[in-house]
Design a protein around this nucleic acid. Structure first.
Length: 481
RNA sequence: GGAGGCGUAGCCAAGUCCGGUCAGGCGAAGGCCUGCAAAGCCUUUAUACGUCGGUUCAAAUCCGACCGCCUCCUCCA
């Protein structure tokens, strides 16, 4: 296990990462409410924690990763009512939609994807225990958590409780003792989705789900709890209260929160109606480019989104893609026992710098910088080799090693898979045909009939086959647009 | 109002906790390659760190004040 440094929202400090029971690491990430399509903000969150998971696993930890779906709450019910369907149908549809956009981003699925409706018994049990311990009280079929019974309330979000209460007023008729007391269980009319409970017909409150699901699947104390920065208060603050009040044990060792995606520096959100759904973006951009874009910033910083920025990320991403092709090409070159001509970039140093960046609070921006720097060094070597007929055998071994490490680091850690880009069914099928046309074009070129040669080249380009003339002949590739 | 965060070259963005040296990308300009292109690669693009003070041999980095922007305090990744 390698040393990893993480920023803990609870202490606002960088800390050495020490899980409770190494090498095991328990991670709980707040998942989406499944009532609508995912936008770039969701991608940011889940790519970030996917990356964190990958770095931990690569570093020798055994990760158990749990991410919930909130399938029953005000929003899923409202959406169901609008569409005359059940909340279960709505939740099923958007759960499927979640996977259909996250899978292409290479976001690994969680070990467990629990749902609220699947944990009603455990929720009722948790609430009942809080009532028994006098951390919660009942008013007309509602159960509220009693903030006054939990002195540490406000610690995570850095809120001064007295000040908050001062500016707030208890809603008349709610029966709450404090304006900050929050519902663990809500009474609802019989015609709404709900369950029978010791307090009557109702459904879970807004925060209890995560406390219960994380405890059910990961135990009393979890190592990492993740989510968006907007969840710190009140959601995570309330989770801490509910969980700690019940178990008496620390709930979370490391709180981690990802920054927002913004549009013109304002938060991307449903209410501002300034979001881009992933489904729409996939019509214009490869998912891998969106993932790359997200990784160009450290996960805690806000990242300003625009189609131009995404295109820029696409250009940077293409550098890596072409570099990978160059590695492959160099690997299959013939070698001879000639003298070495160039200083090969150090693979070890690159790997050290790259991993150090990721292990210092998952600094993907820094890691990508190290990667691009190393790529540039290699490109210089490739340019030197371009005019040679053979390369040195030892140099070729270096290329093979470089290719293997590049594949490993990009695929396993960054979740950017370059090796799959180059093998395309379309390619195999039409390869012979394209070669035939290139042959034909070469004859025109030799005869000096460039207008015919260009016609072939242009028509192929229109079909998505791009030709590259080089001293060693003409090559081609399939270009996605 | 309370809490948290941000302000680095044309643009994006590391670095700020642990003062002293490189980030990296996009764009742009040159060049290589080409019959010409396209694509790709290389080189050059910077003594940049919101403002004003202070500490220090030395500050983007530490201290103080100020200005501007964002987020949370209401569902939100």
């Amino acid at each position: 296990m390698e040393t990893i440094t993480v920023y803990n929202s609870l202490t606002s400090k960088m800390e050495k990462f020490q899980p409770l029971n190494p090498p095991r690491v328990n991670i709980y990430v707040c998942g989406p409410t499944v009532y609508d399509d995912c936008h770039v903000g969701h991608a940011r969150a889940y790519v970030s924690f996917d990356l964190i998971r990958r770095v931990l696993e690569y570093s020798g930890y055994q990760v158990k990763y749990v991410q919930n779906f909130t399938d029953i709450d005000d929003k899923t019910i409202r959406r169901a009512d609008e569409q005359g369907r059940s909340y279960r149908e709505v939740a099923a549809q958007y759960t499927a939609s979640y996977f259909s956009v996250m899978d292409p981003l290479n976001v690994c699925r969680a070990d467990v994807h629990p749902t609220v409706s699947g944990h009603i018994d455990e929720i009722i049990e948790h609430v009942r225990a809080l009532v028994d311990k006098s951390h919660a009280y009942t008013v007309n079929g509602n159960v509220y958590f009693d903030i006054g019974s939990f002195p540490a309330y406000g610690q995570l979000s850095g809120q001064d409780i007295d000040e908050m209460i001062e500016g707030d007023r208890v809603e008349p008729g709610s029966g709450k003792r404090s304006s900050l007391d929050f519902a663990l269980w809500k009474q609802v009319p019989e015609d709404q989705p709900g369950w029978n409970s010791p307090w009557g017909y109702g459904r879970p409150g807004w925060h209890i789900e995560c406390s219960v699901m994380s405890r059910t699947h990961l135990g009393d104390t979890i190592d990492i709890h993740g989510g968006g920065q907007d969840l710190i208060f009140p959601h995570h603050e309330n989770e801490v209260a509910q969980s700690t009040a019940l178990t008496g044990k620390p709930f979370v060792r490391y709180w981690m929160h990802n920054g927002f995606v913004t549009i013109d520096d304002e938060k991307m959100s449903k209410s501002l109606n300034n979001f881009y759904t992933l489904e729409d973006l996939y019509k214009q951009f490869e998912p891998a480019v969106i993932r790359y874009f997200i990784l160009t910033r450290q996960y805690r910083s806000p990242i300003d989104f625009s189609l131009d920025r995404l295109s820029e990320a696409g250009e940077a991403f293409n550098r890596l893609r072409h570099f990978y092709r160059r590695l492959q090409a160099a690997e299959s070159r013939s070698c001879g026992s000639i003298e070495s001509t160039a200083t090969i970039p150090s693979l070890d140093q690159f790997k050290i710098d790259f991993l150090a960046a990721l292990r210092t609070d998952f600094n993907t921006a820094k890691a990508l910088g190290e990667l691009q720097k190393w790529v540039k060094k290699w490109n210089r070597i490739f340019d030197i080799w371009r005019d040679k007929t053979v390369i040195n055998r030892h140099e070729q071994e270096e290329v093979t090693a470089a290719r293997a490490v590049f594949e490993e680091l990009t695929a396993e850690l960054l979740g950017l898979d370059f090796s799959s880009c180059s093998s395309d069914n379309k390619v195999d099928r039409s390869a012979g045909l394209i070669d035939l046309l290139i042959d034909l074009r070469d004859r025109f070129r030799e005869a000096g009939d460039y207008s015919q040669a260009d016609l072939i080249r242009d028509r192929l380009a229109e079909l998505g086959y791009q030709l590259h003339d080089s001293p060693r002949g003409t090559t081609w590739e399939v270009v996605d647009d």
